[in-house]
Design a protein around this nucleic acid. Sequence first.
DNA 1: ATGCGGCTTTCAATGGTTGGAATAGTATTG
DNA 2: CAATACTATTCCAACCATTGAAAGCCGCAT
Lengths: 284, 284
Amino acid sequence: MTLSPDTETHTDTPNAASPARGKRPKQGEPVIDRALSLLAVFSDRRRALTLSELARHADMPAPTALRLISRLVAWGALERLDDGRYVVGVRLWEVASLSPRGHGVREIALPYLEDLFEVTRHHVLLAVRDNEQAVLIERLSSKDATEVAYRVGGRAPLRSTAVGLVLLAGADQQFQEAIMAKPPEKEPGVADMPEGQLRRTLSDVRRTGIAMIRRSHPSMTVSVASPVFDAQGSVVAALSIVVPDGSTPPNVLAPAVRAAARAVSRNLGHQATVSADVRTHSRG
Amino acid sequence: MTLSPDTETHTDTPNAASPARGKRPKQGEPVIDRALSLLAVFSDRRRALTLSELARHADMPAPTALRLISRLVAWGALERLDDGRYVVGVRLWEVASLSPRGHGVREIALPYLEDLFEVTRHHVLLAVRDNEQAVLIERLSSKDATEVAYRVGGRAPLRSTAVGLVLLAGADQQFQEAIMAKPPEKEPGVADMPEGQLRRTLSDVRRTGIAMIRRSHPSMTVSVASPVFDAQGSVVAALSIVVPDGSTPPNVLAPAVRAAARAVSRNLGHQATVSADVRTHSRG
DNA sequence: ATGCGGCTTTCAATGGTTGGAATAGTATTG
DNA sequence: CAATACTATTCCAACCATTGAAAGCCGCAT
């Protein structure tokens, strides 16, 4: 990369050399997209970033990044630390807390999650689907609980987690097919199913209202998940419990998880039915 | 508003008529600011908005709003409901969950909040300061708890809430003076203190590590709050409990609240000290 | 039918946006 | 302590994304 710094302006003939490196190649992208791509640079492992890191990862010149970031900071979407690095700001968090599928379901579900948590003292999770993944909305864990793979705000694959299976089973047929057409996301500690088994599993999940996954990676655990329905009968979230493998038999956990999920569904205006595909008639 | 549509270009002399309604008066504001102002339209009472509502509240023409909103939707900052209205999206919530002062402290504090909650069965709150207000980061409440004024993601005044007093007491001197120079935010159900009493109160809070407020509005309650410190010894959050007035004596609650706040502080790397103004010497 | 309101697309004018270059500041190295 | 390498910031002329009136659509109430 050591380019000889000619004292000449020189600029070189900008044609032949590298075709992908014109004079101002990045132009053409809307400003908002660029600003959002800056936000997207932040991740679990990158919570505090310098200007140049942000510029590098978002693939834009430092001056441009600085200008955009300054506006974001002025508004409160980002905050600047004493050492000059940037972090996601409370103001953004505040607006995000108005997300119906984020804090919305959480707010409604929390009391029931707590009940389940207090009774079992194991991890209790709540997740929603966003595109092709599950997003963890809430997790209650005692200080001494077993290690668990996901954090609140993190993403998990649909095919190889209990909440994922529940959400996938509740998605529309077309989406399910699209997912199954793709190669599965590799997930450590979970054996991924062949398509036939997956189809059968999803069908079972719909029928029983329970999904179960055993995994070995961060630790040996069993997850049991159940769907949360909204007033229209759509699956809007998945509630699950994660226990050390061998502690409590899954068939003991299932009723508790399902009861909690139902309680949340009821609070969302869902009319409980005998079985998933039976709708009660008329009702104000 | 019926302006005569002259077939002439005419353009008119844009001075005399309505000075606030030039040809394109809104130009000059950076795009990002406009996009952010769209996000800012959302509030507790406005969680789902139509295009025209957004355009109206953000004070911009519908086509402009549509263009910006479309980009936000494409990224996931907003989501569009079946009825055409827009809500805050999960993707934005996901990024916001990386906010150190938002979910960051929450994540660390949650187990201790839960402990406190389980023991007392009363509201447990966690708040941080953002500019001149406290922002509620977490609230644990049993399903049958007394009514409480604030929701997670909401804002509360510094001068008239227990968490607010703790955060104010922990802010730098200059900021405190600036706040006291301003007229207090009117808060229903709380008698606001004269400046002298406020100064004394803040001093007491710093000394004792406890703030207490009695309020009558949504219901008769007593709040007891205590500061959470980071590794540098700054007050980064306030932890509080809200109980019905007359239930548990505040002096019984104080030790429990303070213990919980200390536990959280310790987890943030704070070295416990005998009194707030004593720092332990040397330490990597 | 007619009017009304909200939503969407179009398009020419233009001013906000852009990023290289230069400067200043800071940490690392010889 | 100078040299080096990196990051952060300011400046500015070229330029293209942005802008919003206008008009077309759609649904709905009159």
